[in-house]
Amino acid sequence: MKRSLLLTLGLALVGGLAVLMLVSLFYTPYEPNAMKIAHRLEAPSAAHWLGTDNFGRDVLSRVMVGTQTAFLVGAASVAIGAAGGLAVGTIAGYAGRWADELLMRATDALLAFPGILLALLLVSVFKPSLSQTVLAIGILFVPSFARVIRSGVLQQREAEYVRAVRGFGAGHMNLLFVQILPNIASSIVTTAALSFSTAILIEAALSYLGLGVQPPDPSWGRMLNESQTYLAKAPWFTLAPGLLITATVLGFNLLSDGIRDALDKRV
């Protein structure tokens, strides 16, 4: 943190959002889904710090609970993408030859589709839900993790320390998981942090289009969809989820750059 301002800023933003998410698990000023039509589209006040939405629901309570959705989608989809990418990348990079060619061509096929279109395709096949959104985004991340891990394994598998350990009779599992993967951990962690912000953006886009989190559950993207009609009359309804999406994506992007700089052994 002393060496990297980016890491400090990223941790501050992400840490603040994480605290907001943890608080929302136990406390919100109001019930997030409680409708009070008589108080619809009220401006920010002492009673409702961020105003109310078109159904009279407290905007602050809903954006607080929306952090749970964002972090859940980010963490779960990155875990799926990392697990799939780890399997594909290690086999392709370590085995080489036909396995490498076959697996890399399959990942190239996935990369040929624009990310949001592929996510739309995967989600639209089944009934839109949070679980389907997580699965679709996770599958979308497999190629990026696979290529990063494959590249690292290819660079490390013929390194002198790997040859030395192999000469002492170490098995393939030891070479991969004890020797090689720890030495490419910085690339994997950086990719995970960057993918986290991408997952939040994709989830917001899918929810905005009605293919992600379904009402009445709070989602920042869904809130943007509901607020667009009232942009001139109730701008606070749009600003709250929009600013949180921006802060979250910025925080994880800064965190990704900071982690890369901090773990880069050449610096």
Rank of each mutant, 00 (worst) to 15 (best):
M1H: 10
S4Y: 11
L9I: 12
A12C: 13
G15S: 10
G16R: 11
L17S: 05
L22Q: 02
V23I: 15
S24P: 03
F26W: 14
F26P: 01
P29E: 04
Y30Q: 13
Y30G: 03
P32M: 10
A34Y: 14
I37F: 15
A38I: 12
R40K: 15
R40I: 02
A47S: 11
W49A: 09
G51K: 09
T52G: 07
D53H: 12
R57E: 06
R57T: 00
V59P: 02
S61M: 06
R62I: 03
V63T: 08
V63M: 09
V65G: 01
Q68W: 11
Q68A: 03
T69P: 01
A70D: 03
F71W: 14
V73Q: 04
A76K: 04
S77A: 15
A83E: 00
A87C: 13
A99K: 00
E101A: 15
L103T: 00
R105C: 02
D108M: 13
L110V: 08
L110C: 06
L110A: 11
P114C: 10
G115Y: 05
L117D: 01
L117G: 05
L117H: 09
L121H: 05
L122M: 13
P128N: 07
S129Y: 06
S129R: 08
S131Y: 12
I137S: 04
L140H: 04
F141D: 02
V142L: 11
S144M: 06
F145T: 04
R147L: 06
R150H: 10
S151D: 06
L154E: 09
Q155I: 01
Q155A: 14
E158H: 15
V162N: 06
V162M: 07
G167M: 10
G169A: 11
A170F: 13
G171I: 10
H172K: 13
L176F: 07
L181R: 11
A185I: 13
S187H: 13
I188G: 06
V189Y: 10
S197D: 07
S197E: 03
A199M: 12
I200W: 09
A204E: 04
L206K: 08
S207T: 09
Y208I: 03
G212N: 07
D217S: 15
T229W: 11
L231A: 13
A234H: 07
A234Y: 06
T238H: 02
L239S: 01
L239P: 00
G242M: 03
L244R: 00
I245H: 04
T246Y: 12
F252P: 00
A262I: 03
A262Q: 12
K265P: 07
R266W: 09
